[in-house]
Design a protein around this nucleic acid. Structure first.
Lengths: 182, 182
DNA sequence: ACCTGAACACCGTTCAAGT
DNA sequence: ACCTGAACACCGTTCAAGT
């Protein structure tokens, strides 16, 4: 007998991303995803392997999203590009904090596709190459990304507890780093 | 009837920390902790409230550990202190990667005691005060900590996939940051 | 006082049976 | 082809009953 599919992998991944942001990683259960796409949990296994595989799809979708933004934030001036890459990463993290945490956290989450990672870093790498030269372009890119990721992660975790202006700390740190590459 | 306690909170926290490093956060189950301390899972609830409370104890113990190390890594020269704080944090993370991830990750883990956080940052804050003055001491400390946390987190997550020397990137970044504060 | 088996809720996953 | 109820394993948690 025919039997039309009620859902596909895309709807499932979208549902999973929504649940991730709304209820955290623990709220992203197979049962909750199933309910959201209008199906019973066992049916999901015909589409996505298992929960781990679904997390991989979520990571992949998030990484693609981020790569697209990074590519869109290029400027003529390498200093402008570096600032835009850092600010863009932060904006992305504020929009999708849980997905950002999944992508850059430590705890055994799936790793993004190397190709997406490469696309994401590329514009920054071009800018640092222009600023500091080939020999240290990668070191410089790692400096910028490490600082931005660390700052954003601490910000999202509420780790800046000594008061004062977090916004100012971002700009101050960002511009110190940019200046140190000049 | 008497009935001597078979275990106390300290053994339970030690068991939990060991499980965390050996089997990850998912391996830190109440049943596994119970088995390690020689008791059945229900008995743990007379000692630690619940799993969440146990995680808080683990975070607290880890944060105290880290604070002690930070205090032990002071030097006369503020530049030496900053280097030592960054290197010490990294050494700590390499020894207890899972605990480090729990402490600095994003995902709804318990937050360390503010007092422990303050102790941990204090030596760095004194050094940055000496280097850049009161007005930007906190901004500078945040720059250093954000970079170090971000670098270490990416390193532990295996996010440095573009090859090359990670060790060199650490030293290069660290010394750029220190120099930018001079 | 402290410990435990039994029980319940919840989640991931499999599979035989339905359409 | 696709979907589902039933079932199993595993974990967190509670509680009445044991010593």
């Amino acid at each position: 007998m025919p039997a039309i599919a009620k859902t596909g992998p895309d709807e499932i991944v979208d549902a999973a991303r929504a649940l991730l942001e709304q209820h955290g990683l623990d709220g992203l259960t197979m049962m909750a995803v199933a309910e959201r796409v209008g199906v019973r949990a066992p049916s999901l296994y015909k589409r996505v392997g298992d929960r781990r595989a679904l997390l991989e799809l979520v990571v992949h979708a998030t990484a693609e999203d981020l790569a697209g933004r990074a590519e869109a934030a290029r400027h003529r001036d390498p200093v402008d590009t570096i600032r835009a890459q850092a600010d863009g990463l932060r904006a992305f993290a504020h929009e999708q904090p849980a997905a950002f945490g999944l992508l850059f956290g430590v705890h055994g989450a799936p790793t993004p596709d190397p190709a997406d990672t490469a696309r994401t870093v590329q514009p920054l790498l071009e800018a640092t190459t222009e600023l500091v030269g080939d020999a240290h372009a990668l070191d410089a890119a790692r400096l910028v990304v490490a600082w931005a990721n660390g700052f954003i992660t601490m910000e999202l975790a509420g780790a800046f507890r000594l008061g004062d202006d977090v916004e100012r700390a971002w700009v101050w740190g960002r511009d110190r780093i940019v200046a140190s590459l000049g």
